[in-house]
Write a protein that binds this DNA or RNA. Structure first.
Lengths: 232, 232
DNA sequence: ACAGAAACAAACATCACACCTTTCATGCTG
DNA sequence: CAGCATGAAAGGTGTGATGTTTGTTTCTGT
């Protein structure tokens, strides 16, 4: 028992490692692994190897076939929306591509989410939105970038949740990731543009005022800026 | 090999059954299962029980804790975008709620997808889009509903794929589900409205003509009809 | 020589059992 | 009453044996 001479890794680390490798393209679609090879490589038992494989399998990264082994699947079969796969893609060589796709998804969803939020928000949420918009303005104008981003994230999360669509709400983490990542990918000015601040204000007001059409319009302004930054 | 006296089920059927039960609310969040109970109930070995649990765990439906058991998680932690969870929700008592959320997601994504497709489509895709739009008109006007829906699905799938965003493409199955389901949920006229046919035509033409703005506008017309049907 | 059937073998699937590890609950002790 | 020690419950991991599927090879009959 005890251990082994081979690289020993923590429990979930194995599906994590394999997931990243597959997403990264280290194993071509159609490539075959075996449980045995995983046991060897990571110094683990069949039980653990099977557990790890199950996770990857349930995200569509591979499937296991008798007498063949573990077959790596092509990207179009992956669960690209699941947080795990998103994480792996963002850690891959094509992080930028993943980031762009996520941004496009965010753009698509947020315009609709703004309208939904305007129709469904509670009183409390309305106040929180207005507060957050004000906070963003304050922090943005005083160039406290880090705090600004935190407020920005809170703003978008709140909006996504206020719409009452759980699938939109589930994107809050993605949006957070994108908002954080913008700085790294050079898609964000060091000082938030006044138009962006105005647009956030507008969105908050429209949502508070239960005006879906206006909320959508303001969000579209916001999103247009993001879109154009994407096309540079 | 033999069998057992207890309800014996196929391999994946167990995570399938449990997934549906959890999504359906048969196990409240915080409720605790044990591997032992699953073994008893399904007449399976620990290995299989663990395998099934791993699947549910990787979709966020539960987590396992030592000395406690398998704790069912609240809906906000579910991987609500993964096909598996979507399937379970659509098979649950709240299928209608899930359907509405999916429709909202579809609405959000498709407007953006239309614009993207207009920017990125290949020549072949352009022709296919125009063809499908024409086919839809023909089938729609002759009230061949089933074939019409098939063409509709193909149209939307093609558009989602043409944009080159894999996350949008992954929604093709969802959209297919929604388009098929519309009839069941009484959100669809037995005869497609002429405006809808025109809008599809418009989208196809705009995409073929590489006009993202127009593609988005036409898609918005389409989507507006869906939205209003949703609000009835 | 070729087609089809039969035997073989590889790899996953499942089972049973033993032991480890974590963590909650209990109860004892100072 | 606080704190610590102890026990037990439940999952986590490891092992070896056996079942099952399926691709490959070999054999046989024509």
């Amino acid at each position: 028992m005890a251990n082994s001479s081979v690289a020993r890794v923590g429990r979930d680390a194995i599906s994590e490692t394999l997931g990243r490798e597959i997403v990264d393209g280290a194993h071509r679609p159609g490539a075959v692994l075996t449980l045995e090879s995983l046991q060897q490589r990571f110094g683990i038992s069949r039980t653990v190897a099977r557990d790890s494989v199950k996770v990857l399998e349930s995200h569509g990264l591979l499937y296991s076939k008798r007498r063949i082994g573990l077959v790596v699947t092509a990207a179009e079969h992956w669960d690209v929306m699941s947080p795990a796969v998103i994480g792996w893609r963002l850690a891959s060589a094509d992080a930028r591509g993943a980031f762009i796709e996520l941004t496009q998804l965010r753009i698509a969803v947020e315009t609709e989410a703004a309208a939904l939020a305007a129709a469904r928000r509670t009183e409390v949420q309305a106040h929180q939105m207005l507060d957050l918009a004000a906070t963003m303005r304050r922090l943005g104008e005083s160039e406290q970038l880090e705090e600004f981003i935190a407020a920005d994230i809170a703003f978008h999360r709140l909006m996504l949740e206020a719409g009452g669509n759980s699938m939109f709400a589930a994107l809050a983490d993605v949006v957070a990731e994108v908002l954080t990542g913008r700085t790294k990918h050079g898609l964000m000015p060091t000082r938030p543009m006044p138009e962006a601040l105005d647009a956030h204000d507008g969105v908050a007001r429209a949502i508070a005022g239960k005006d879906p059409r206006e909320a959508r319009r303001c969000m579209e302004v916001l999103v247009d800026e993001v879109r154009s930054a994407l096309e540079e």
